[in-house]
Design a protein around this nucleic acid. Structure first.
Length: 802
RNA sequence: GCGGAUGUGGCGGAAUUGGCAGACGCGCUGGAUUCAGGUUCCAGUGAAAGCAAUUUCAUAUGGGUUCAAGUCCCUUCAUCCGCACCA
């Protein structure tokens, strides 16, 4: 049967809308289910099939949960601040507000066409001043608690985008937005002290149900290492001058033959008068500064460096004098910017020592230090009081005890994660609500002055020096200090794109509240997010940032849970038909609108979920879409064979099995096998050639979360009560999912010889005698001695003969 | 380099967690319907051999454990994704 999907789909979308079926109820007695998907950035290009896949997973789970009686909150919104819109604004000379509204409208239309069961009464837009008023509120709280601060630092600067980027946004020395090389620049920037929460962000992972790879990436990102700080006194420097280093292997202290400090290390500046080769050091530093991050981390890590003449370190455990080098393999940004080098047991130190002809002293046995650094475990040697220690845990512990006793070092922890560079010199972002007062310093705006609105500007281009377009608006910049009332100037930088998305899920709970982020009672009811699904690309940045904000809000008493997301899963990419990542330049992008035009939303939804493992990447295939279209059409054809003759035994058991499988598979996000099971059932029904109205209704309800429009239409035609989307989810009888007789495979010496039909749970003797009666089995064992007989009930029989 | 994952027909992918490999879908082959294309329906479809029943081989690679391995252990290779001189 052909069906007019375009009018059917529109009809039901309108009916759902009119009946408010997908609106979440506050304060309901029902169990709640808060399903969250990553809200889109409304780009000018419109939606992508990837968006549809990202939302389809929890869409199906949400629809099923509603049918199971849950009060479901499945919201959507728009993360609309950001550079692409601002760049379009410059290009087309149109205000980003206008572009954003236009794009949001477009996205909303597309989402509605696919029939997603979002609660459209709770839509949020991060660029709405009623929304960013609360983003600013959180920033002010952080500022007042000392978690937002300003510092001059070497920052990652993108000359193309003219913005400072966080470490996270400049991985591999490339700008995350335009992919051009970034440069290091000294600038005054805002930071959020996320490092203060590093340990809690790590520990919190124990209490949540995230995909293992999601957890692993976050653990790696936080990058906790434990070790020790050790203070080396410096000969030739002032009395009491200490060169402080961080090491994970303090127990190798007796193997130290040199030290290395980063080229930017302050020790060099401090003692430039006493260092006899300062010119060479200056030259080296300049050379290093010229290298891009990419060059500095090139695959071939040829070590470079310069020995510092005039000062040297003293090994605190044995008093030996050791040379100090500067080299760019040591970075100022990690640890103390200085290391003790143990070439015998560290590959980098080994390479450096070989190149510069420095001694190599073995302190851990097990390798051959003539040939390579030995980084494995082994007995300690040449190490005084550590000699004879056989285990690294013990030797580290002992050394730390000694260091602490003597006051020359202590146990310490380091994180790879750095504080979050939190400002951009751009227009289309949340203004940072801070005033610079000549007398009071930096002052946060009081709550009553929030929101601090973005002023109208003529020109969105950032200034040449990289300052924000807001800096040119005098009426915005000049203001009174909220504290002393004197003349002051506003901060002109804006927040990065990640700000608005760091707390958005909270706003869905109470999107119109003008007194608080959300009403505490409602927060209490809805939080935490029960299930969050999104892309792997957001696992380290967005998720860590938002967990950090949430923990801060928890500490402030503004939210009731320490972790925002109870469960996190991720969908895989949809690749182009050529198997490559979809991109405009490759011309392999599939437009969801075109698919809906041609096949309808139900077919699009079914295909996207049927493509393969939801968590894995899979290429788009136009011909496979047709297979799903056939499936939907064949479901419509079921109507023609409905009969009142009563149930057939074969189908009854098939239905119970399918209900069980579909119910479980949806919860496990195994949508492909859920659909396959329904296809299988459909085939069986056509083989039997008849089914009852009740069976048909079960089928329609099982399919409803996946292809809701056609199911509503069929439900109506068959005289179902109310809306199919609100009908009760079918239940199954476990006893009816198992057959009374089972087909059991019979093997002889592990080779399949045939199958026999046995009663369920038939005993071993019966099973064997039936098996041996099989002609093929009998001939295979004839004249041989039976060595062993294995019977796994309902599964397999294996007869071992000789 | 480190960490994680993946590897199954022509293709996308299944496999109740050690028990009949290839469910379901696409594609393909043959047939029916059709003026024809499309659609729909029926049958077939991992490879090789055979008229056949059947036999042999087959889950990247090589080995191992087991009555039994896609699944567990070890080796090698390939692809993808993170991180990357993190001391």
């Amino acid at each position: 049967m052909k069906y007019d999907f375009l009018s059917i789909e529109k009809k039901w979308q309108d009916k759902w809308d009119a009946a408010h079926v997908f609106e979440a109820q506050d304060g309901s007695e029902k169990p709640k289910f808060f399903a969250l998907v990553e809200f889109p950035y409304p780009s000018g290009a419109g939606m992508h099939v990837g968006h549809i896949k990202a939302y389809s997973g929890l869409e199906v789970v949400s629809r099923k949960r509603r049918m199971q009686g849950y009060n479901v909150l499945f919201p959507i919104g728009f993360d609309a601040f950001g550079l692409p819109t601002e760049n379009s604004a410059i290009k087309y000379n149109t205000h980003p507000r206008i572009l954003t509204d236009r794009n949001i409208e477009k996205f909303s239309q597309q989402l509605k066409r696919v029939g997603f069961s979002f609660d459209w009464t709770r839509v949020i837009d991060t660029t709405d001043e009623d929304y960013y008023r609360w983003t600013q509120h959180i920033f002010v709280e952080m500022f007042n608690k000392g978690l937002a601060f300003r510092d001059t630092a070497l920052v990652n600067y993108c000359p193309h985008c003219k913005v400072v980027l966080s470490n996270e946004d400049s991985q591999g020395g490339k700008c995350d937005i335009c992919h051009n090389d970034i440069v290091q620049k000294s600038k005054d920037v805002w930071y959020l002290r996320i490092t203060k929460y590093a340990d809690r962000l790590l520990q919190g992972l124990d209490s949540v149900d995230y995909l293992p790879q999601v957890k692993q990436q976050q653990v790696n990102w936080i990058g906790k290492s434990t070790g020790a700080f050790v203070n080396f006194s410096v000969k030739g420097a002032d009395e009491g001058e200490m060169l402080r280093i961080y090491t994970t292997r303090p127990d190798t202290l007796f193997g130290v033959t040199f030290m290395v400090i980063a080229p930017e290390h302050p020790l060099i500046e401090k003692y430039r008068d006493r260092i006899t080769n300062i010119d060479a050091l200056d030259e080296y530093k300049t050379e290093c500064a010229k290298k891009t991050e990419f060059q500095r981390t090139q695959l071939v890590k040829e070590k470079t460096g310069v020995k510092i003449e005039g000062i040297c370190g003293i090994n605190p455990v044995n008093g030996k004098e050791i040379p100090i080098y500067t080299a760019d393999y040591v970075m100022m940004g990690y640890g103390t910017g200085a290391i003790m080098a143990v070439p015998a047991h560290d590959e980098r130190d080994y390479d450096f020592a070989k190149k510069f002809g420095i001694d190599i002293i073995e302190v851990i046995k097990g390798g051959n230090i003539e040939e390579a650094a030995y980084t494995g475990d082994g007995d300690m040697v040449n190490s005084d009081f550590l000699d004879g220690f056989t285990n690294k845990k013990d030797s580290i512990k002992r050394m730390i005890e000694v260091l602490e006793e003597k006051g020359i070092g202590e146990e310490g922890v380091q994180y790879k994660m750095k504080d979050w560079a939190f400002n951009r010199q751009r227009y289309w972002g949340e203004p940072i609500p801070i005033v610079h007062c000549p007398t009071c310093g930096m002052v946060a705006l009081p709550e009553s002055e929030l929101p601090l609105r973005l002023p109208a500007v003529e020109n969105f281009e950032p200034g040449e020096g990289g300052e924000s377009p807001l800096a040119k608006i005098e009426s915005f910049v000049n203001c009174k200090c909220p504290k002393c009332g004197g003349d002051a100037k506003r901060e002109t930088d804006t927040m990065p794109q990640w700000a608005g998305s760091s707390w958005y899920f909270l706003r869905y709970i109470d999107p119109k509240n003008d007194k608080a982020i959300a009403d505490p009672e409602k927060l209490n009811y809805w939080m935490p997010v029960d299930w969050y699904n999104g892309g792997m690309e957001h696992v380290t940045r967005h998720m860590i940032y938002s967990r950090f904000w949430h923990k801060f809000l928890y500490d402030m008493g503004e939210v009731n849970t320490e972790e925002p997301y109870a469960k996190r899963t991720a969908q895989g990419l949809i690749l182009g038909p050529d198997g490559e990542k979809m991109s405009k330049s490759k011309g392999n992008v599939v437009d969801p609108n075109e698919v809906v035009d041609q096949y309808g939303a139900d077919v699009l939804r079914t295909y996207i979920l049927f493509m393969g493992d939801y968590g894995a990447a899979a290429p788009w295939s136009d011909s496979s879409v047709k297979g799903c279209k056939r499936f939907i059409e064949r479901v419509c054809d079921l109507k023609t064979i409905i009969q009142g003759k009563g149930e057939t035994e074969k189908l009854t058991s098939a239905f119970h099995k399918t209900i069980k499988k579909v119910s479980n598979d949806i919860e496990d996000m195994k949508f492909n096998t859920a659909i396959a099971a329904m296809m299988g059932l459909l085939n069986e029904i056509f083989e039997v050639g008849q089914l009852t109205v009740d069976e048909f209704k079960i089928f329609i309800r099982l399919l409803c979360p996946i292809a809701p429009h056609i199911c509503e239409e069929l439900w109506e035609e068959i005289g179902g009560n109310g809306l199919c989307s609100l009908a009760e989810w079918p239940s199954y009888d476990e006893a009816k999912t198992v057959d009374s007789t089972v087909e059991v495979a019979v093997q002889v010496n592990g080779k399949l010889k045939g199958t026999v039909m046995l009663a369920l749970n038939a005993d071993k003797d019966t099973a064997l005698s039936v098996a041996k009666a099989d002609a093929k089995v009998a001939s295979a064992i004839e004249g041989k001695t039976v060595v062993k007989e294995i019977v796994i009930p309902n599964k397999i029989i294996n007869i071992v003969v000789k």
